[in-house]
Nucleic acid binder design. Structure first.
Lengths: 139, 139
DNA sequence: TTCCAGTTTAGAATTATTATAAACTAGAAA
DNA sequence: TTTCTAGTTTATAATAATTCTAAACTGGAA
């Protein structure tokens, strides 16, 4: 699934967000973003995949720190679920999800697949940051 | 905020779901459902409120068991958030939420306030159980 | 080359939830 | 009413996810 070596791009990207391009962050960048399809994950799954067969390990704490930093920087998006675990998505564009209650799997719904014809006005002094739809499905 | 003593109604309601109407369950029913406005809570907040000034305490384990039982029975609805904590809502009707990222508070959005003009077809063999919109707001 | 703020790390601490197993109780049946 | 038992409650232990801590490490400016 790895497309190409976008290392220089990642270095720039990280610098532009005041994140030092460390070995660990670049490794995680390559794993997350060098792919065609978007990727859904939890810290647990990311940790397993990153440290599967690597010579040098990335610590769990760093995985947590990095995911948090990338989310704040806008490179990742947190997904809403009812599980007590954080889910992330490499697709940061406005889009929605199917959540399969049986398999507990998330699938993207392209933003064009859902159209809202009416949206409420936010409370005074607040503005809308984003709008997410989760459609729970079952057999 | 307590409206009236609906004890008999709760006894019937619980029986109809094969839940014995125990002291603890009835106490929780009265607290949750004897009110005009709907109520958002976590197990933590519910535990505090139920045990605030009561002569007899309801154990935390029972709060968990009861909330789980009431959710399965359809008396409560789990709310989708990005926090690692379960949120529940006494409003089980189809409706949506504002989630204030600053105060971390949830506000109901009546279902009529949001209108969808296009909804995707679920994957084969699956059907839609529900559809929830969360609008994140900030200053 | 030096230096230091930013980063990584292992492990401890914390928080939310689930599991366990003994004691209790609602309510059917005697 | 009393007896009996499956369902329920409870304190506590166990587990799981995340955050904290503080010591060691490092990118990159000077």
């Amino acid at each position: 699934m790895i497309i190409s070596d976008n290392l220089k791009i990642y270095v720039q990207k990280l610098r532009s967000s005041n994140l030092r391009p460390t070995k660990q962050r670049l490794k995680i960048c390559q794993f997350l973003f060098d792919r065609e399809k978007t990727f859904h994950f939890t810290v647990e799954t990311l940790n397993k995949k990153i440290n599967k067969n690597g010579a040098s390990k990335v610590s769990l704490a760093t995985i947590y720190n990095t995911v948090e930093a990338f989310t704040s920087a806008g490179y990742l998006k947190e997904i809403l679920t009812s599980k007590n675990k954080s889910y992330y998505d490499t697709n940061i564009k406005s889009h929605h999800h199917f959540y399969d209650e049986g398999s507990k799997e998330l699938t993207d719904i392209h933003y064009s697949q859902i159209q809202l014809s009416k949206v409420p006005i936010p409370p005074k002094g607040k503005k809308i940051k984003n709008l997410e739809v989760v459609i729970r499905i079952q057999k």
